[in-house]
Write a protein that binds this DNA or RNA. Structure first.
Length: 159
DNA sequence: GCCAACGTTGGC
DNA sequence: GCCAACGTTGGC
């Protein structure tokens, strides 16, 4: 089993949006980065846990936990000429982009912010989210980093 | 709004 | 294959 973190802008699709979906499941479409696609294609398995990360918002951070509900399959939004994520280089016969389905698991008791994560730089050494200039929307999380971050949830942050 | 970091594109 | 130009991401 692998652990993951996936970013979304809550203004476009938030954890609350996922919760309100039928079955609390949603296709994770719109990934247009080869590295991220390859991780989804080659490594993501049904049941893998995922940190649901809110980016580009007032308090960037981890809002909840979701799980992979369906493994990689063609992202049809790439086929639609009027879609924002249209890619003429992708076709149903030869799909370039893939998506997975994610399902809501639980909300964290509090948002674990990027700022808070940064205060644990040594414990989280190597965590991709904290690497400078990282812009990947899908990233793997080491098991020990996952456990550390989950443990932070119930610790009242001082400061 | 600014801007650093990064990926992609395309001319050569 | 090189690399400048460009677009995007995303924290601040």
């Amino acid at each position: 089993m692998n652990f993951w973190l996936m970013k979304t802008e809550p203004g476009a699709f938030s954890l609350d949006d996922l919760i309100s979906r039928p079955g609390q499941i949603e296709p994770w479409d719109g990934v247009r980065n080869y590295q991220a696609r390859n991780m989804m294609r080659d490594q993501m398995k049904v049941g893998d846990p995922v940190f649901f990360y809110h980016s580009n918002c007032e308090i960037p951070g981890i809002a909840g936990i979701v799980r992979i509900a369906r493994e990689a399959y063609p992202d049809h939004t790439a086929f639609d000429p009027v879609h924002k994520h249209y890619d003429p280089g992708s076709s149903p016969e030869n799909p370039r982009w893939l998506m997975v389905d994610v399902q809501f698991v639980r909300r964290l008791q509090r948002i674990i912010s990027l700022a808070e994560l940064k205060t644990h730089a040594s414990a989280l050494d190597g965590f991709a989210l904290l690497r400078k200039g990282n812009r990947l929307s899908v990233m793997a999380v080491d098991a020990r980093h996952w456990a550390f971050i989950e443990a932070l949830e119930t610790i009242t942050q001082r400061g």
